[in-house]
Design a protein around this nucleic acid. Structure first.
Length: 667
DNA sequence: CGGCGGTACTG
DNA sequence: CAGTACC
DNA sequence: GCCG
C-alpha cells in the first residue's frame, strides 16, 4: 500500500499543473469570472481568458458540450476566436470548483462534459487534509516538484480506469504492482536493466557484458531513484506546457505525458465466465490476482520457479530472445553514435536484401535487422571481427562485412547494386501498396521515377494510386505533438459516438518515439453488439468531419476484429498521414494491444518464443494445443484452446519473460 | 541440417 | 491465389 | 544468414 503522503502528492498533481482558460459561456459576470480564476489560483494553477500554449484545462459552462463550446469559439464568441490547444481537458467550472473544495483531483481525460452531471471521481477527498498550499508557484514558473513522484502516471491511470468508462471495478491494490517504474527506463541506457534478466547463459552473458559496458553509466542513474523519478515526474507534470526541453525527455516521460491526453484503457480487463474459470496468475498460480499485480519476482528467476498449468509452459528463457531484453530506441538519439558508419552501411545492405523479395533474402534481411537492433544500442565502437562476432545475430558473414566496412569504409557488395534500376526499384517499393514484385515490374516496364508512375496511373491499383499521389507527404515522419492532436481528435469522436469505449493509441507512439510513421488507434467496448456497428460509425464520422481523406483497406461485413487503414489529415496540418484503426472484442484486448504496440521485430520474437513452447500468439489470443501441419506450416490442423489473459503482463508471465513496458519494445 | 510470426485485405 | 500490409 |  502506498503511504498517505504519496496519495496526497498524487491528488495535488493534477491541480498543480492547471493552466485554465475560461470560455465566456462559463461565467455570467466579471465577478463570476474572477471567482473562477480564484478557484484555479487556489489550486496552484493560473487562469486567463485567452488560450495559451500552456493551457491544459478549458472550463465550459454547465450546459455546453465541447462541441458546442467549439462552435461558439469558432464564431468568435468565446476566447476571442482563438482555438484552445487541441490536447486541453474540457471540464465544467462547477466540477472543478467542487474538486478543489473536496480536495479531490480531476479525472484528466474528460472531453465531453455535460451539464453538472459528472460527479468528482476518485477517492473521497475527506482524508486528504491540507493539500492546498497557497504559496505554490504556477506551472510555468515551476522548475521541478519533489512532491510529485514517478508513480504519478499509474495514479492517473488508476483513476482513469475507475473513471467514467470503468466505474468501480478497481481493487485498491492495483497500483502496487510489480510494474516497472518509468524512471528505470530513462533514455540514458535501458541496457542496464537487461542485467536483471533471468538467465546466465555463458555465451550470452559475455555478449551482454560486451554491449552493456555502454550502459554502465546508467547503473548510477537507475540506482539513484530519487533524481530520475523527479525528473520523470516533472516532465509529465508539466505535460501541457510546450517546452523546448521535450527533446531531452525520456520515452517513459513522453508516454506518461501522452497518457494524460489519450489513454483510456484499463490495465486489466474482465473475462467471459468460461475464461475467468480457468484464469489464474501466470506468475505464481494464485486465483485472486493476475500477473500485473503479482508481488512475486518474475517467473523463471531462481526465486520464482512457478510453471503455469498449460501444456508447453517452461521455466526459463534464454536472453537471446529479443523480447526478453530491453530495447530502448537509438534512432532518436541526438549526436553521432560510435558505429554510425557500420550501421548506415548495414542498413543499406538490409534494404538490398529486402528488395530481392525472395524467402531467403527476407530471412537475411530480418536477421540483419535484428543484429542492427543490437548494434545500434552499443555505445562503444566496434573495432575488430571478434568483437563483432560476439554481438547476437552477428555471425561469420555479417562480421566479415563489418570488418570490411572498418577497413575500407564501404561494402563492395553495395556498390554493385548502385545502379539506376536498383535505385528506382527501391524508391518504388517505398510507395504504399507497392512491394518488391510490383517495383520490379515497374522497372521492367521502363519506369524510373515517381513522376513516371504519376503519368501512368491507369497501370496502378487504387491503393497504389493513392500511395503514389501522396508519396512525398507520407514519407514525412509525424512529430509526436501532432500525433497527440490527431489521437485526441479521434478519441473525441469515438467517445462522443460511444462513451463506454476503451481507446489506446499504439504503435511507435505508445513506444514513446519522438516522431511516428503513422497513427495507430485501438478501440474496444464491453458490449459485442455495440462493436458490430461501432467500427462503421466511427469511420463514417471521421470521414464526415473531414479527418479521414482516403481509404486504403477496411474490413467489410462482420468479423471479430475490424481493421481500417487509410489516410487522415488535421485541418491545420501540413501533411496527410497514415492512420490505422482497429476495433477488437473486449476479451481480445490484451493480445491486440500487445500486437498493435509492437515493434514488428518484437512481435516476431515473442511469437516465435510462444511457438517454441507449443503455443501460438496472435493479435487475437494466445492458444495452447495448436496442431500444425508438418509440411505446410501455414496449414493449421487445430486451433487449440485459448489461454485467457487479462493484461499484457499475463502474456509476458506466460512466456516467463520479465515485463517490458512499451518503450523497451523498440527493435 | 531444419527452422525462421500470425493474420487480413485487395484484386 | 499472389502480393502487400499491420505490428 | 544465424542458431540450436
Amino acid at each position: 500500500m502506498e503511504s498517505k503522503r504519496a496519495k496526497l502528492a498524487k491528488k495535488k498533481a493534477f491541480l498543480e499543473g492547471v493552466h485554465a482558460v475560461l470560455t465566456k459561456s462559463a461565467y455570467e459576470s466579471a465577478a463570476h469570472a474572477r471567482r473562477r480564476a480564484a478557484v484555479i489560483a487556489k489550486a496552484g494553477g493560473t487562469c486567463t481568458m485567452e488560450p495559451t500554449d500552456e493551457t491544459n484545462v478549458v472550463l465550459c459552462s454547465e450546459t455546453t458540450t465541447k462541441a458546442e463550446a467549439m462552435e461558439r469559439i469558432k464564431q468568435g464568441k468565446d476566447l476571442g476566436g482563438k482555438p484552445p490547444p487541441e490536447a486541453a481537458h474540457w471540464v465544467t467550472t462547477a466540477w472543478l470548483t467542487e474538486c478543489v473544495k473536496a480536495k479531490t483531483f480531476i479525472p484528466y481525460d474528460c472531453f465531453t462534459v455535460r451539464s453538472g452531471a459528472p460527479a468528482p471521481v476518485g477517492e473521497s477527498g475527506s482524508s486528504a487534509a491540507e493539500t492546498g498550499s497557497p504559496s505554490r508557484q504556477p506551472l510555468r514558473h515551476r522548475s521541478s516538484s519533489a512532491s510529485s513522484t514517478s508513480s504519478q502516471r499509474s495514479a492517473l491511470q488508476h483513476i482513469n480506469s475507475n473513471g467514467d468508462y470503468f466505474p468501480a471495478s478497481g481493487s485498491p491494490s492495483r497500483t502496487t504492482s510489480n510494474d516497472n517504474n518509468p524512471a528505470r527506463a530513462l533514455d540514458v541506457g535501458p541496457m542496464s536493466s537487461t542485467l536483471t534478466v533471468n538467465d546466465t547463459h555463458p555465451r550470452s552473458s559475455e555478449q551482454t557484458a560486451l554491449i552493456s559496458t555502454a550502459g554502465a553509466a546508467t547503473h548510477a542513474t537507475a540506482a539513484a531513484t530519487e533524481p530520475s523519478a523527479s525528473a520523470s515526474a516533472s516532465a509529465s507534470a508539466s505535460a501541457s506546457a510546450s517546452q523546448p526541453s521535450s527533446a531531452t525527455q525520456s520515452p517513459a516521460a513522453l508516454v506518461a505525458r501522452s497518457q494524460r491526453v489519450v489513454g483510456t484503457s484499463p490495465e486489466e480487463i474482465e473475462l467471459p465466465p468460461a475464461w475467468e474459470a480457468i484464469y489464474h496468475c501466470y506468475n505464481c498460480g494464485a486465483k485472486d490476482h493476475g500477473a500485473r499485480t503479482c508481488p512475486l519476482p518474475p517467473r523463471g528467476t531462481p526465486e520464482n520457479t512457478y510453471v503455469p498449468g498449460f501444456p508447453g509452459a517452461r521455466k526459463r528463457v534464454s536472453r537471446e530472445w529479443m523480447c526478453a531484453r530491453s530495447h530502448g530506441h537509438r534512432k532518436d538519439r541526438q549526436g553521432a553514435g560510435p558505429n554510425d558508419l557500420i550501421i548506415s552501411n548495414l542498413e543499406k545492405l538490409h534494404d538490398t536484401y529486402a528488395d530481392y523479395g525472395t524467402w531467403l533474402h527476407q530471412l537475411k534481411a530480418s536477421n540483419l535487422h535484428t543484429a542492427l537492433a543490437f548494434i545500434r544500442r552499443m555505445k562503444e565502437p566496434i573495432t575488430t571481427y571478434e568483437q563483432a562476432r560476439r554481438i547476437p545475430k552477428v555471425g561469420n558473414e555479417t562480421a566479415k562485412k563489418i570488418d570490411e566496412i572498418l577497413s575500407t569504409g564501404t561494402l563492395q557488395r553495395l556498390e554493385a547494386f548502385d545502379t539506376p534500376e536498383k535505385r528506382a526499384q527501391h524508391e518504388f517499393s517505398q510507395i504504399y501498396g507497392v512491394g518488391t514484385a510490383t517495383a520490379k515490374q515497374f522497372v521492367a516496364k521502363g519506369f524510373r521515377t515517381i513522376q513516371d508512375l504519376l503519368d501512368n496511373q491507369h497501370e496502378l491499383t487504387e491503393r497504389q494510386r493513392i500511395g503514389v499521389r501522396l508519396h512525398q507527404e507520407l514519407q514525412e515522419r509525424i512529430p509526436r505533438t501532432e500525433v497527440d492532436r490527431m489521437v485526441a481528435h479521434v478519441k473525441h469522436v469515438v467517445l462522443s459516438i460511444e462513451p463506454g469505449c476503451i481507446f489506446e493509441a499504439c504503435g511507435s507512439y505508445r513506444r514513446g518515439k519522438k516522431t511516428c510513421g503513422d497513427v495507430d488507434v485501438l478501440i474496444s467496448h464491453r458490449d459485442k453488439r455495440v462493436l458490430d456497428t461501432l467500427f462503421k460509425r466511427v469511420i463514417d464520422a471521421l470521414h464526415d468531419d473531414g479527418f479521414l481523406t482516403h481509404d486504403l483497406a477496411r474490413s467489410e461485413g462482420e468479423s471479430t476484429q475490424y481493421k481500417y487503414m487509410g489516410i487522415g489529415k488535421l485541418k491545420d496540418a501540413s501533411f496527410h498521414r497514415r492512420v490505422d484503426i482497429i476495433v477488437v472484442p473486449w476479451e481480445e484486448w490484451p493480445c491486440a494491444i500487445l500486437y498493435f504496440t509492437g515493434s514488428g521485430a518484437f512481435n516476431r520474437s515473442m511469437r516465435l518464443l510462444a511457438r517454441k513452447m507449443g503455443w501460438s500468439l496472435s493479435q487475437h489470443t494466445i492458444n495452447y494445443g495448436v496442431v500444425r501441419d508438418r509440411k505446410e506450416k501455414d496449414k493449421k490442423l487445430g486451433d487449440g484452446s485459448v489461454i485467457p489473459v487479462k493484461s499484457e503482463h499475463d502474456v509476458f508471465a506466460l512466456l516467463a519473460l520479465k515485463y517490458r513496458p512499451p518503450w523497451e519494445r523498440n527493435a
